[in-house]
Every structure is written in C-alpha cells, then in structure tokens.
C-alpha cells in the first residue's frame, strides 16, 4: 500500500540569458505541490497527467531517489525519507530511466539486480529464468542487450524491477514507445500483478491507457491533484460521457491528449 500525504518538491533551475552571460539567474520551479493519494494492494492505480505535470517527480520521491521538501509518503508503513532501505526492499521500480547494461545479457542484467536486492546467486539465477519464461524472452536471454528492440528492452527492464518479487510496483510510463502487441502484453503483465495481490502504481499521459487498466485514477496537473477516484466517479463528477472529455475538462486543456 502506498500512502502519500501533502508531498511537495521544488527545483532550483539555473538559467543563462545567453551562452556568454556571466551570471545565471535562478528560478524556483514547483514540481509537486501538496500531492495526496492512496494506492491499495490488489489494485492498479493510475497517475494521469499531461507532460510536466509532476508524475515522474512524484514517482522518484516514492522510489527514494528524491527527498521530499515537505509532506510524507509511506510504502507499507515505511517512510520514504527516513526508512530508505526498507522502502527500497519492498519496491519494484520501472523508473523514467530504463537503461540496461549493453554488454551484459538479458539474464545477467536481471540477475544483477536480484543480487543487489540480497538474493543469493543461485536464487537470483532461478528468479531470472522464471521471469525470462514469463515474459517470453527465452530466445534472447543470453544475448547482450545492445541489439534489443524497444519492446524487448522494456521487458528486460520490467523483469529487473520484479526480480525480488516486490509487493509494491511503481511503473513510470511503461508503455511509452511500445507497439500495439508490446503494449498489450504489458497490460497483461500489469493485470497479472494485480491478480497476485500487488499494489501497482503506474503513470501515463495517455487517457486510454489508464482507462483500460486502472481501478483508481489520480489526475495530476501542474503539480497538484485535480481528481482522485474510480473511473465511474470521474464521469459522475465531470458530467461527461467519456473519460477523455472528463480528463480535458479536469485539467482545463487538451494538452495531455496529444502529447
């Protein structure tokens, strides 16, 4: 379970007027502004919002990469700021950066993260094999990941995030850049996680993606939560017939739809 309460994060941006400007001016950008929501076990929660709304920053704070300026977030009761080791052990994260080690094989990439999560070598290898089978990567398992397609890379990255069988799974735009077939298999995988009783929080800027999967939707715009509820609650609250229209009305622009 993920509990987020009044989470805030601001960045200082340094800007130069021109290449030769001596002085850089600094600007404070509020990325996340008092965001609160709860994601339950056995449910898929969607974090929906246009580009730059603060989805990635929120997920990075949840995955202990960034320290919140204010507010609290707990993963199964563990505070993300003060109990990092516990949080990291219970989380599986497919973050904004999904890079792999090019020269290592798919199996080695997955097993390495298993070892870092404290699995013994044979245990990590067994778990990697299991995930490779589940994700249909068997034919590629021994090849270096350098030549992999976008979808194959995403599968390895997801397997890497799930190698220690985490209770809570954070997915940052997991279908970005995938073709239809790969998107469908990613959806299957997320449904599988829900069926296994996991708490899944995934972010997307695509309404259809969220509508197809989520039990609960948190809509974020300019760092703030503008709606939190089930898909049917969104329709009821906005008085619109389709989720797409409701989304546009809630964020006050059509920006997110075409991004």
């Amino acid at each position: 379970m993920i509990e987020v309460c009044d989470l805030c994060k601001a960045f200082t941006v340094r800007e130069r007027r021109s290449t030769f400007a001596l002085r850089a001016s600094t600007r404070n950008v509020v990325a996340v502004d008092r965001v609160s929501f709860t994601a339950h076990d056995g449910e898929v929660t969607g974090l929906l919002g246009p580009n730059g709304a603060g989805k990635t920053t929120t997920l990075r704070m949840l995955s202990t990469l960034l320290t919140p300026d204010a507010g609290q977030a707990r993963i199964d009761g563990a505070d993300v700021a003060s109990e990092q080791p516990r949080v990291r052990r219970s989380l599986g994260v497919l973050g904004d950066a999904k890079g792999l080690y090019w020269r290592l094989s798919a199996r080695e990439n997955i097993a390495y993260f298993g070892r870092l999560h404290g699995l013994a070598a044979p245990q990590a290898a067994r778990r990697a094999d299991q995930l490779i089978d589940e994700l249909g990567l068997a034919a590629l398992a021994e090849r270096p990941t350098q030549g992999f397609s976008q979808g194959e890379r995403m599968k390895v990255a997801i397997a890497r995030a799930l190698v220690h069988n985490p209770q809570t799974v954070l997915l940052d735009e997991p279908t970005n850049g995938l073709d239809i077939m790969a998107t469908r298999s990613m959806r299957e995988l997320i449904r599988g996680l829900r069926a296994a009783g996991k708490c899944v929080l995934f972010s997307s800027h695509i309404m259809q993606e969220v509508a197809a999967l989520c039990d609960r939707i948190v809509i974020i715009d300019r760092g703030r939560v503008v709606f939190n509820g089930t898909p049917s609650e969104i329709l009821a609250a906005s008085g619109k017939r389709s989720l797409e229209d409701a989304f546009v009305q809630l964020i006050g622009s059509e920006e997110g739809l075409f991004a």
Binding site: E3, C5, S36, T38, G77, S82, P85, R86, N228
Partner: peptide, 30 residues
C-alpha cells in the same frame, strides 16, 4: 478536488547509515 490520506499507524524505524553497508553487495557490484 483532493482526498484526505488515511492516517498511518506504522512507527518510524530509522536505520543508521553505516549499518547499511554490505560487503556482499560491494563484491556483487565489483
């Protein structure tokens, strides 16, 4: 439109940083 987060019951167990160091993980990284 925001919802109020449920109150959390878990207590905080801050772990000291030095104790987090693991020789095994060091060697795995190496």
């Amino acid at each position: 439109m925001t919802t109020v987060v449920e109150p959390t019951v878990a207590t905080i167990h801050p772990t000291p940083k030095a104790a987090d160091f693991s020789w095994a993980r060091w060697l795995v990284v190496t």
